[in-house]
C-alpha cells in the first residue's frame, strides 16, 4: 500500500510538469484557437535561459528562475507580435503549421547559440534530490525529495496566481471574455490583438517555469521540448480548453506513467498515457472537464 502511495507521489511531481505545459497549450488554445505545438520548445528555451543566468553568469537560483520566467514572457509576447500576428485571420491550419515550424527552428537555434549547444546541462538548485521521510513503518518508508516537493509547491503556487489573475483582475476577466466571444470582446473595446500577445506571454512564462522545475530531474538539452508530446494528451484528457482540466489531466498522466512503469512490463510506461487518453475519448469525448456551449436563440 505504502509503495502505491509512493508511486503516486513520484508520479504527481512529473505530472505537475505535464500540467504546466498542458496549461500553456490550453491558455493559447482557449483565447486564440491556435494549438501551439511549440509549447515544449518554449519550455526548453526557458530552461536554457535559467541555465545561462545561473550556471554561465553565476546568478543565484532564485534570480535565475525569475529572470528566465520574465525573459520568456517577453519572448512569448514578441513571438506573437512579430511572427503570429501577421498570420492572424488565416485558416487555423496555417497558424498550427507555423507553430510546428517555430518548434523545429527553436530546437536548431538552441543548438547554435554559443554556450548552449547540443549537450545536456544541469543547474544548481537549492533543493536536494535526497528523500525526506514522511512516514516510516517497520519495513519501508514514504519519502519525497525536496526537488519533487519544489515542483508540486511551485505548481500549486502558479495555479493559484493564475486563478486569481483570471478571476479578479480587469484584464484577466477581459481575457476570459476574449476567449468566450472574440467579436463581442472587440465590441467592448478590448484590444483583442494585444490580449493575444499577453496570453502568449503568460503561456511562455508558465512553460519557462516548467522548464526550470524540470531541469534538475532530466537535465537541460535541446530535445527536452518533446515533453510536449506527453503534455498534449494531458490537455486533451482534461478537455482541451479547460484550465482545471489541464491540471488534472497532467497529474493523471504523470501518475499513470509512474504506476505503469512499476506494475506493467517494460515499455508500457511510455504508451500508458495514450491508452488512457484513447479510453477517455471513447467514453467521454469532450474530455474530463470539457465545457459544452449551446447558443440560445
Amino acid at each position: 500500500m505504502l509503495q502505491f502511495v509512493q508511486l503516486v507521489l513520484n508520479g504527481s511531481s512529473i505530472g505537475c510538469i505535464y500540467a504546466l505545459v498542458a496549461l500553456g497549450f490550453v491558455l493559447i488554445y482557449k483565447a486564440t484557437e491556435v494549438v501551439n505545438f511549440a509549447q515544449g520548445e518554449l519550455m526548453m528555451f526557458g530552461a536554457f535561459f535559467a541555465y545561462t543566468l545561473i550556471t554561465l553568469f553565476g546568478f543565484s537560483y532564485w534570480i535565475g528562475a525569475a529572470g528566465a520566467i520574465l525573459g520568456m514572457m517577453a519572448f512569448g509576447y514578441l513571438l506573437d507580435r512579430v511572427v503570429l500576428r501577421p498570420v492572424l485571420g488565416q485558416p487555423a491550419f496555417a497558424m498550427i503549421m507555423l507553430t510546428i515550424g517555430i518548434g523545429y527552428v527553436s530546437r536548431s537555434v538552441a543548438g547554435l547559440v554559443p554556450g548552449w549547444g547540443t549537450a545536456a546541462y544541469a543547474i544548481d538548485t537549492p533543493f536536494s534530490a535526497e528523500g525526506l521521510p514522511l512516514l516510516t513503518t517497520a519495513e519501508t518508508s514514504l519519502v519525497i525529495s525536496e526537488q519533487n516537493l519544489s515542483i508540486i509547491g511551485a505548481t500549486v503556487l502558479f495555479c493559484a496566481v493564475l486563478f486569481a489573475f483570471f478571476r479578479y483582475t480587469r484584464i484577466g476577466v477581459a481575457m476570459q471574455a476574449t476567449s468566450q466571444n472574440q467579436l463581442a470582446a472587440y465590441y467592448m473595446g478590448i484590444p483583442v490583438k494585444s490580449v493575444f500577445s499577453l496570453i502568449w506571454a503568460i503561456s511562455a512564462g508558465v512553460a519557462a517555469a516548467a522548464g526550470v522545475l524540470l531541469a534538475p530531474i532530466t537535465l537541460i538539452d535541446t530535445n527536452m521540448g518533446f515533453i510536449g508530446l506527453k503534455a498534449f494528451p494531458a490537455a486533451v484528457l482534461g478537455g482541451f480548453g479547460s484550465i482545471p482540466g489541464a491540471i488534472v489531466g497532467g497529474l493523471t498522466i504523470g501518475i499513470i506513467e509512474s504506476l505503469a512503469g512499476f506494475y506493467l512490463p517494460q515499455g508500457f510506461k511510455d504508451i500508458a498515457a495514450y491508452i488512457v487518453l484513447l479510453a477517455v475519448l471513447v467514453l467521454r469525448p469532450e474530455g474530463l472537464f470539457g465545457q459544452a456551449t449551446r447558443k440560445k436563440v
Partner: peptide
Amino acid sequence: QDPDRVMRAGISHVPEGREVFPFLTVHE
C-alpha cells in the same frame, strides 16, 4: 479602424444574436 478603437470613439455595437459572454456572470 479596429473595432476597439471605434468603440473608444463612442460607438457601442449590440451584435445580432446577443453574443454575451456565456461563462461570465451577468455583473462581469
